[in-house]
Simulated scan of single mutants.
Amino acid sequence: MMMKKLIISTFLVTGLMSGVMAEERVITTSAYITQVVEALGKERLLVGADTTSRYNDELKKLPDVGYRIALSTEGMLSLKPSLILWSSDSGPKNVVEQVNKSGIQTYVLAKPSNLDELKSLVTQVGEIFNEPTKSEALKQSLEKKHGLLKDDMSKRGARKTLFIMEEMGGGGSKSFAGGDTSATALIDLLGLKNPFASQFNAYKAVNLETQIQQDAEIVLIGTRKEFAEKNMPVIRKDVSSIGWPKPVQPKCVFEVDISHVLVYGVHLYDDALTLSRMIDECLEEAK
């Protein structure tokens, strides 16, 4: 972590006295970085982005430089970038090293996992693009939304919630989120409680009996498919859709777009507030 901070600080001192100029050609390598660039009004400078950054129609028009941990040296350099914003987990290592040796200006930005780290990222990107006023306004907006989520939490309480990762597993099995996952981080952000977080880490197939024993009121189903409603990352589902016997079905089931809600970026707070309000509406109806 100290090394990453040193890299960023060195570039800030030597290369940011006048900020990023309008003619810059920028590549971003993770959605959480792209979201900040877009929020600061600099998306017009993008000439390429990684696969995880293709979350709207405009970004899908950009050349795809590959998944953030499987990037291509040739693919990136062919776009003639003047600035590359690396994610702290960008790879493979040899690609990062080859691109860095090309003389292109680069920055390494740490992946955030909480509000303070996200605000730090916004500050850093704001400095890179010489947009301190916009970055400060964005941070204040994030703090306000975080406050609204905390209000929802205090009214709702820590309801037991499970997260099914639909794209994992096979043969009819369902993989559930445990501790140290982005899914559990989402549940925590909503002030809910994942019973599996204390039982195992990562994602694990769980039999039906064990699922039911958790006594969850809410179930979230994570998918990557295109949602029917544009820009709506959450869809309410019938509680029977998860296959539990009727007497023990949860109160609420939602399908969530993991390309949105599992990225700890500036869009997450909007998505989390949307989901939070839908959960409250569902729980009220279930009384």
Score class of each variant (00 low, 15 high):
residue 7 I to H: 14
residue 13 V to P: 00
residue 25 R to L: 07
residue 29 T to N: 10
residue 34 T to D: 07
residue 38 E to L: 04
residue 38 E to V: 15
residue 46 L to A: 11
residue 51 T to K: 12
residue 53 S to Q: 01
residue 53 S to N: 01
residue 59 L to E: 02
residue 62 L to D: 03
residue 64 D to Y: 09
residue 65 V to R: 03
residue 65 V to I: 15
residue 70 A to W: 02
residue 71 L to D: 04
residue 75 G to E: 07
residue 76 M to N: 00
residue 79 L to K: 11
residue 84 I to T: 03
residue 85 L to M: 00
residue 88 S to K: 03
residue 91 G to Q: 01
residue 92 P to R: 01
residue 92 P to E: 10
residue 97 E to K: 13
residue 98 Q to I: 03
residue 114 N to A: 09
residue 118 L to D: 06
residue 123 T to H: 04
residue 127 E to G: 05
residue 127 E to C: 07
residue 128 I to A: 00
residue 128 I to W: 03
residue 133 T to K: 15
residue 136 E to L: 11
residue 137 A to M: 10
residue 139 K to H: 01
residue 141 S to Q: 14
residue 142 L to V: 12
residue 143 E to N: 07
residue 144 K to M: 14
residue 155 K to F: 03
residue 156 R to K: 09
residue 159 R to H: 13
residue 163 F to G: 02
residue 169 G to C: 05
residue 172 G to F: 08
residue 182 S to Q: 11
residue 189 L to V: 02
residue 194 N to R: 04
residue 196 F to M: 07
residue 204 K to E: 10
residue 204 K to W: 02
residue 205 A to Q: 13
residue 207 N to K: 04
residue 214 Q to C: 00
residue 216 A to S: 15
residue 216 A to R: 10
residue 217 E to S: 11
residue 222 G to K: 04
residue 224 R to Q: 14
residue 227 F to V: 08
residue 229 E to V: 15
residue 233 P to A: 06
residue 236 R to E: 15
residue 241 S to N: 08
residue 242 I to V: 14
residue 245 P to H: 12
residue 246 K to M: 05
residue 246 K to G: 02
residue 250 P to M: 07
residue 251 K to A: 09
residue 252 C to D: 05
residue 256 V to I: 15
residue 260 H to K: 15
residue 274 T to E: 05
residue 282 C to P: 10
residue 284 E to A: 09
residue 285 E to L: 05
residue 287 K to Q: 12
